[in-house]
């Protein structure tokens, strides 16, 4: 279960979008956040904070995109498939969604979204991980 103490990494190159995602997560009871302005910084933050329990990342970011960050996470033995990863994206074209699924994304939310949509999506991801653990 995503406990309220779950540490969340929010990666987005846009400060205001990070604020919007964080506000929605706070609405859901989460309180511990890390922020990263691009995929490269997000990767460093992840390495320095192995107790991060959920990543919510934008797709289009400089240096390292959300998709590349996801691929790195899934290829790394320390995280493998146990770190829930969600993409927040304006891209909802079938081909791109398929690419993200292939890379191991757990869920994606298309901008704009409301707190309830985020809650529903996180609920689905949690369900999936519980199933895996069972």
């Amino acid at each position: 279960m995503f406990a309220p103490t779950t540490k969340i990494l929010i990666a987005d190159d846009m400060t205001t979008m990070r604020k919007i995602v964080m506000k929605a997560c706070k609405e859901l009871g989460f309180a511990a956040f890390f922020e990263a302005a691009d995929g490269q910084i997000a990767w460093q933050v992840l390495n320095e904070n192995p107790d991060i329990g959920l990543v919510i990342s934008d797709w289009n970011m400089p240096n390292c995109s959300g998709l590349d960050l996801l691929k790195r996470v899934r290829a790394d033995g320390r995280f493998k498939s146990t770190l829930p990863f969600m993409l927040v994206t304006a891209e909802n074209e079938a081909a791109q969604v398929a690419e993200a699924i292939k890379a191991g994304v757990d869920g994606y939310v298309v901008k704009p979204f409301a707190a309830n949509a985020l809650a529903a999506k996180l609920g689905e991801i949690h369900k999936k991980y519980n199933k895996k653990a069972a």
Partner: peptide
């Protein structure tokens, strides 16, 4: 919010 987190089918 009271139950904390989102480990449920909202």
């Amino acid at each position: 919010r009271t139950i904390g987190g989102v480990g449920m089918d909202y």
